[in-house]
Computed example of a mutant assay.
Amino acid sequence: MHPSTLLTLDTPAAIVSLPRMQRNIERMQQRADALGVRFRPHVKTSKCAEVVAAQRAAGAAGITVSTLKEADQFFAQGVSDILYAVGMAPHRLAHARDLRQRGCALQILTDSVEGARAIVDHGREHGHVFEVLIEIDTDGHRSGIRPDDELLLSVGRVLHDGGMRLAGVLTHAGSSYELHTPQALAALAEQERAGCVLAARRLRAAGLPCAVVSVGSTPTALEAASLEGVTELRAGVYVFFDLVMRNVGVCSQEDIALSVLTTVIGHQADKGWAIVDAGWMAMSRDRGTAKQARDYGYGQVCDIDGLPLEGYVLSGANQEHGILSHEGAPDADIVARFPTGTRLRILPNHACATGAQFTAYEALAADGGVARWPRFHGW
């Protein structure tokens, strides 16, 4: 049964199931250990000290961040091995240098000659040696240099000859989110691995250093058969999972650790709607499942204990109003089934986006105890 706290918390609230979260953390760490690589979790999903402490306790080596504010926050909390895995904008170099000069082992990223030159120029001007990785594009999803492109060696030479430390190469198979079979995910994981390893070999063959070979996305990390030639694995959303990952096929609904606690505040009986106080300001605008085989609207409706109520989804959302309805034929008994005041939990499409709507998580332990875990925002 649910703890009484879930009946007294103000809503909407972000609930983290600690048993599920811990199971997810252990699963991914065991994968990295079995594949023989360091695991560097991406902490942009949670942006929460307590979550990251649990990841590190399980064996994580360093963290990955998506903003320098994350680097600031976690460095202040005692984490010094940090990878900023977003292309470095020249105006942020002073901030990155300040972190490094205060003792943070911050690695930065580039994928262009222009970006490399900006890093070199700033480093020379201030007498500082940055540690830099080159981003590799192994699936055409986002940014990076193709593994076989001559540009790779040009960027490497600019950094190395300019006195910076060329630390290695990094890739992210973001297109894995578009797949949904183990076979397709395993094939992309191998493409990701092989492409990044090829880039590393080309740099080394040209006489350039390349100690780090960093790969990862949650789906490819969980389906990779081998990471030969790779030194570290990264993943982020696995810590909570979500409905997009459920559709991709790397978790079940029972693995999703994040949900939004909400209250029924009214009805449109003739339409078969219950109105809840979790709109898109609570769930986010992310409709990631809309392009997948199973569309959950703005989220899967669960009872207060977190058990999915099959067929019921958050089918619409305004800023502070969510529309709960039944897929297919409207529920004529919606008022009786979900009386005003009923408490429910909604599983999110995208845990990173939903988490970002809240200043804190309500961490729900197996014994029913709830602790408030602050979450930070911004850049």
Rank of each mutant, 00 (worst) to 15 (best):
P374N: 11
P308Y: 02
V16A: 07
S112L: 07
G140R: 08
S214V: 00
M164F: 12
G355Y: 08
G229L: 00
R202S: 11
A85W: 05
I323G: 13
L6Y: 00
V37G: 04
Q77Y: 13
E150N: 13
D303F: 07
D295G: 13
F338Q: 02
G62E: 03
W373A: 14
W373H: 11
P348L: 04
L151Q: 11
I82Y: 01
S175D: 05
P90K: 13
L243C: 01
A184E: 09
L314R: 03
T181S: 07
A32N: 02
R117V: 08
V248C: 02
C48Y: 12
R375W: 14
D98C: 10
R40Y: 03
P219K: 05
Y84C: 08
L347S: 12
T342Q: 09
R20G: 06
R375P: 08
T171S: 13
G355F: 12
Q300K: 03
H42N: 06
S46K: 02
V250T: 08
G36N: 03
G378H: 14
Q30A: 10
A60N: 01
G299T: 10
R234F: 01
A89W: 12
G103A: 03
R102M: 11
H160I: 05
P19W: 02
H141Q: 15
G174S: 01
A184F: 00
L152W: 05
A329H: 13
G123R: 03
I119V: 10
C352Y: 15
V158I: 10
R117G: 09
M164I: 02
I304Q: 02
A225I: 10
P41D: 09
V158E: 09
A200G: 05
L106C: 07
V239Y: 00
A282V: 08
L9I: 13
L198D: 14
L7A: 07
C251Q: 11
G140E: 01
D255R: 05
T342L: 04
E190L: 06
F39R: 06
V79C: 06
L347R: 11
V86S: 01
A356T: 05
D139A: 13
T11M: 12
C251E: 06
E310F: 04
E131C: 13
W273M: 14
M164C: 04
R372P: 09
H172M: 04
D33V: 10
V213E: 02
G115H: 00
F74R: 02
N349K: 09
I119C: 00
H377T: 15
S175W: 12
L188W: 10
